[in-house]
Amino acid sequence: MSASARKLPTKMVEKVWGRETLPEPFLAPGGVRIGEIWFDPPAELPQLLVKYLFTSKKLSVQVHPGDATALPGEDGKEECWLVLDADPGAKLAIGFDREHPHEVIEQAARDGSIEQLLTWHEARPGDVYYLPAGTVHAIGPGLSLVEVQQTSDTTFRLYDYGRPRELHLERAMAVADCGPYPDEHRGTVSSRGETLIDAAHFRVDRIEGTPGATVSSAYTNGLLALPLKGEVGVRTGNARAGAGECLYAPSIDALDFASAELTLLTRPRAY
């Protein structure tokens, strides 16, 4: 691992379902709908991508392959969401109302009735969702999320509300779980405590102030620090990150949390 702790470059991504007005501290270019704000993965942690999502319309109904189901040229993708803000009635579609035969889901994707078969979860700030690869999902409008994921852009769309974009039904149905979303994959920041996600490909912790010994012991190698409130700095050098920014560090000992209030920490499960 590199000894260089530093702030990561930020990339705004235009999306049809994004917003022209973003919540503070972000500012969208005039007349542009920004749906995602990425932090380019550092060379030391190429397998992990952190981003913000801001929605004004529904995202497509989609699914991602896992490492075991991805074909050559595809990459597996598991992900998780932390809801930062939600308009009244904002929802996330994850999984189905019951177990369905694959041919039923495929036909529903073709005729649009898949929206009625999905389970729509009312979203509130502080909600946490872990989505293993193969989970069929869609994000509704009126949401601000942090997403942590494997670095992958392999997405198979099942339904896109009539938008003129390609669907990928054959590959989607080959990797999709057509059953309900397991309750154990969802929670809240109050029910989960500091460790929000400890999954197959990454870990995510939510820290108020300075991390304690238990969390610190889990971050002895490279990590990303995403301040939600306050600032995180480095012990050697001038790099600092505030809300809306992200730091890479070779270990948690390289970071200074004296001005931190609320911070997400994440790292790959294995190096």
Rank of each mutant, 00 (worst) to 15 (best):
L255G: 00
G126H: 08
R110M: 10
Y130L: 15
E115M: 13
E79F: 14
G126K: 06
G30D: 13
I114T: 04
L71Q: 13
R206I: 00
P23H: 03
S2G: 02
I139S: 01
T214E: 15
L143K: 00
R186I: 14
Y129T: 01
L255D: 10
P29T: 11
Y271A: 09
Y130A: 11
Y129Q: 02
P42K: 00
T119Q: 10
T188C: 09
R192P: 05
P88C: 05
S191V: 10
R235E: 12
A258N: 14
H201F: 15
T10I: 04
P25K: 03
E99R: 02
G76S: 04
E208H: 12
E147K: 06
L265C: 03
Y181S: 00
T151L: 06
L22G: 12
L265W: 11
V63T: 09
K7Q: 14
G162Q: 06
Y52N: 00
A86S: 07
A241I: 13
P141Q: 08
G222H: 02
K229R: 15
P25F: 05
T263F: 01
A243S: 15
I114D: 02
K229W: 05
P41W: 08
S152Y: 15
L262N: 06
P164D: 10
R192G: 00
Q150D: 07
L48K: 04
T10W: 02
V83F: 03
V204A: 05
P72N: 01
A123V: 11
A93T: 03
V83S: 06
G30H: 05
G66C: 09
S144K: 06
V128H: 01
D205F: 05
F54Y: 12
G140S: 06
L169T: 10
S259W: 08
L167G: 01
E194Q: 14
R33I: 03
L265E: 06
E208D: 13
T55G: 10
E231F: 14
L265R: 08
L131V: 06
E184S: 03
G140Y: 15
A176P: 15
D67T: 04
G73E: 05
V189I: 12
S152H: 13
